[in-house]
Nucleic acid binder design. Structure first.
Lengths: 352, 352
DNA sequence: TTGTAAGCGTTATCAC
DNA sequence: GTGATAACGCTTACAA
């Protein structure tokens, strides 16, 4: 196959026929490039014959307009930036997929950046995206301060919609989850199973979902007459490993909890892993319920009781909000909340 | 908050200070824009004092060069296109993450497209990416013909590296998995557990991994003196649902298999789900082993025996190959194969 | 209905 | 060393 690459005159690839430009199309069609442009974009009135000629020339040359040149001129890229702490997380991957679909329908492409759960990464991502003149931003922040966020994006006026984790007083809208009711569902359910010593694997408190879920947990506990105990609140990074560690710590307490609530799918998985390492069986030795119902939640051992929601809907909603904001810069701030529901499976103590 | 948006002179956003351009920097520094450009890019020799002045002006204005304009001029975007059948699949999500890391290090950004497991989607994705003049392509093809692929990308000469699924005689390189040895590992192991009636949940045969794994399965069976039976070969789409269905069909055969090999994580999960629906218990009623070890494989019931590998390494390797190809267009075609290993857990019949 | 010309924000070539 | 000037490929007033 290397022999195929033999030809070398003019460029690295033998097949590279200099790609056609608008001027080429115009020339072949025998018109000026402005006319060609109009014909191709359906703007202005032109003679049917002219339009046909241009279209034919374009087809003949397999003309593809340069998105770069067009964007430079029109100051619109039809590209939106998507920033998440971790694309490999099932939640963000699904949200991305949902957003993709909605954006594509509206004619937008997505440029993806992974902040690696770090403020510095997020800032770099935003900078890059703005340098590329994205028309809008979809971000699940790792917890930037409003001030910092403004410093980075302030000048551009690029609309931004937050999802999952929000920056206050910033952006054109946000979509979040029903964190408070969700947590309450979890706690109430565990309490109904007779638990009182309930611990929480909380996520990073730099992020909205981390904070809100922890607060909601405390509130739900109090509402049930249960005092939240500091040693039962375990702050983790949003990773399986981090939760495994935290669960071990919890289980080594002199009065270990009888149930735990995990703030995310990763954290629930970590809890499961820790129990397996210790030879504990759920829900007998420890009951577990999580916020986030991963698509394989049903196939785990034990099947995971969790608060579920449609992660794609989150992405989709955020994308819709953004599209609206991009089309009309002066819309009021809008918030969407995606509903959640309790999925009872065995890990909490419910029958299989 | 709406009240904050009051100011209206000059634009939709009150804060939008017209972003600085190179010309602005040049003016403040008291030099021409060519000099400013050189100073900022460290090209050519210039007086230290001049460089300092330019740098200061740039800092003062918070100057950010327009990636668009630069790309238009230099014909390089430092962007690579990434095309996969389904971003939400854990494998592709992980591969993406791996590629991201490697590309970012080399100074590239990624533009992501989801082909939705369809040739049409893939073609559209490639077109869009090329319209944006990406410098390179990373694609897990859904099975385009070499001809079709060439028609779409041919003119551009843009280097392309395939991963997971390959198009023959196309692209600058590819990274795949050790499909043949992997399948053999799976089949041999099941045979050692005493199975003879082994079925396969094969993926789409339009894709390399689907075909190669099916072929490898047959080969491994024959090597063990077992004749592959047509009714034990079930072709699926790469989805949990599709595999659930196929498993039910398998189980309704008059002589159902005693073991099944799944060609991907999704397919293994589908098999698990079907068994659960039928109240069957693994590995007693049916043994299962899969190609692909999802990160939660250990926490399933039963824990999944599988051929595992590092999905991020796949992305990373593909990205490295691509970076090399982008830097030097005339490198010979290169292939990387990522090794696999058998992870014995309980679903095959091994002790927990 | 169509053409001319200016310009989007850079970098590259060539003088000075 | 530094500055004009001409692209890069497109859109869009403004003229004709």
């Amino acid at each position: 196959m290397t022999s195929l690459r033999g030809g070398r005159a003019g460029g690295s690839s033998p097949h590279r026929k200099r790609v056609a430009t608008l001027a080429d199309v115009a020339e072949i069609a025998g018109v000026s490039s402005s006319t060609a442009s109009r014909a191709l974009n359906g703007r202005g009135e032109l003679a049917d014959s002219t339009r046909a000629a241009v279209l034919e020339a374009a087809a003949q040359l397999d003309f593809r307009p340069s998105a770069l040149a067009r964007s430079l001129r029109t100051r619109t890229t039809f590209t939106v930036g998507f920033v998440v702490p971790d694309v490999a997380s099932p939640f963000y991957a699904a949200a991305l997929k949902g957003a993709q679909g909605a954006l594509e329908e509206a004619g937008y492409r997505v440029m993806l950046m992974d902040s690696e759960q770090q403020a510095a990464g997020e800032i770099a991502a935003l900078r890059t995206l703005l340098d590329h003149q994205v028309d809008g931003l979809l971000v699940a922040t790792t917890g930037l301060s409003p001030k910092r966020f403004d410093e980075v994006t302030g000048g551009s006026g690029t609309p931004c919609v937050f999802f999952d984790s929000i920056i206050r007083r910033a952006g054109a809208g946000s979509v979040g989850l029903d964190n408070d009711p969700g947590m309450r569902l979890l706690v109430d359910h565990l309490v109904e199973h007779g638990h009182e010593r309930i611990a929480i694997l909380a996520g990073s408190l730099a992020e909205t979902s981390g904070i809100e879920r922890l607060r909601a947990f405390r509130k739900a506990m109090r509402r049930r007459g249960l005092a939240p105990r500091a040693e039962y609140e375990r702050r983790c990074r949003w990773s399986v490993e981090s939760a495994t560690l935290a669960t071990h710590e919890l289980l080594e307490l002199s009065a270990p909890p009888t149930a735990v609530v995990a703030s995310s799918a990763e954290l629930a998985l970590g809890c499961l892993a820790a129990c397996r390492e210790r030879g504990l069986s759920l829900p007998g030795d420890l009951a577990l319920a999580g916020f986030d119902d991963p698509y394989f939640g049903d196939l785990l051992e034990p099947p995971l009781t969790a608060v579920g929601y449609d992660p794609r809907a989150v992405g989709r909603a955020a994308a819709s909000l953004l599209v609206e904001a991009m089309r009309d810069g002066d819309r009021p701030y809008e918030t969407v909340t995606v509903p959640v529901e309790l999925v009872r499976r065995r890990s909490c103590g419910c029958p299989g």
